[in-house]
């Protein structure tokens, strides 16, 4: 599966008008956000990608891979599907210990059995950089916290599944380190698409797709000013996270905290 590029050709908006952005190329290595208000059509866009739409969905969009119609096996044979999907509903159901679970998955994915141990170790290490509380190999999957679960879902999809395209639908809500996540994901040459309401993720992306009335209305590359905004947003966001943690720990706030939010 040597995917270099995915192209989306525009269709129609909810009100039947031609989609303002008629062509969009996503290249390997791109980190992309999809933004828009609730009901604007973000999930519909994700669905079109997942379906390899060929003018056969309500939007009329078409998708090409490497400039060509995607092979039928992408759609027909789940094992050939180049897309991994993590949604806000996605979770682990297994109650196996984490290490055992990842080993089962790695065994199915990897032809080279000598790699299994290494894959599992790397997946755990990846997950543990995203979450505050480390995931131990002996802990049961069902005992993982929300943040640990998200972190492991992302790590597993990136390292063991290793699909060239990863869709992440509003995964920001459970406490993972988002700056670190995007920094780590950038080391893997894939197309990462975040559906997000989080300014931090949107501004850390290479570009963001704006969805309105069921259509892609704009594509904005993050410019220098926005990148700086992103840095400030991260400071603000961290200040809030710290405050939240202090309150959680049963601590009182002081002048220092007041300043941290005032100057942020």
């Amino acid at each position: 599966m040597n995917i270099q590029k995915m192209t989306i050709f525009g269709g129609r908006s909810k009100s039947g008008l031609p989609e303002p952005v008629q062509r969009l190329d996503l290249n390997m290595g791109d980190v992309v956000s999809i933004v828009g208000s609730t009901g604007a059509g973000k999930t519909t866009l994700i669905n079109d990608i997942e379906l390899f739409a060929d003018a056969n969905t309500p939007t009329g969009r078409r998708l090409l891979i490497n400039g060509e119609k995607p092979p039928a096996e992408y759609r027909d044979n789940p094992a050939c599907n180049p897309i991994a999907l993590i949604t806000q509903h996605t979770t682990f159901l297994s109650d196996l210990p984490v290490g055992e679970f990842l080993t089962i998955h790695a065994n199915i994915r990897s032809k080279d059995k000598s790699q299994i141990e290494d894959l599992v170790t790397r997946t755990l290490a990846f997950a543990n950089q995203l979450t505050g509380e480390p995931v131990q190999p002996l802990i049961r999957m069902t005992e993982l916290s929300g943040g640990q679960t998200r972190a492991l879902l992302i790590a597993d999809a990136t390292i063991i599944c290793n699909t060239p395209i990863v869709l992440l639908d509003e995964v920001e809500n459970a406490g993972i380190n988002r700056n670190r996540a995007i920094e780590l994901l950038r080391q893997y040459r894939k197309i990462f698409i975040f559906v997000t309401h989080d300014p931090r993720i949107a501004l850390l992306s290479d570009y963001r797709i704006v969805v309105k009335d069921g259509s892609i209305s704009d594509v904005f590359h993050t410019d220098e000013i926005e990148r700086k905004c992103g840095e400030r947003v991260s400071v603000l966001d961290d200040a809030l996270t710290n405050l939240r943690n202090q309150l959680r720990r049963g601590e009182r706030l002081s002048q220092a905290e007041l300043e941290s939010i005032t100057c942020a």
Binding site: D76, P78, H89, T90, T91, I104, R109, L153
Partner: peptide, 28 residues
């Protein structure tokens, strides 16, 4: 219900179907 489970479990589920029924065509 493929959007409800991790990619890992989806793949293990698929592999188990293939173990039991190698000729059955799987559609997610």
């Amino acid at each position: 219900k493929i959007d409800r489970v991790s990619q890992a479990e989806r793949e293990v589920f698929r592999a188990r179907i293939q173990d039991v029924a190698p000729k059955v065509r799987i559609h997610e």
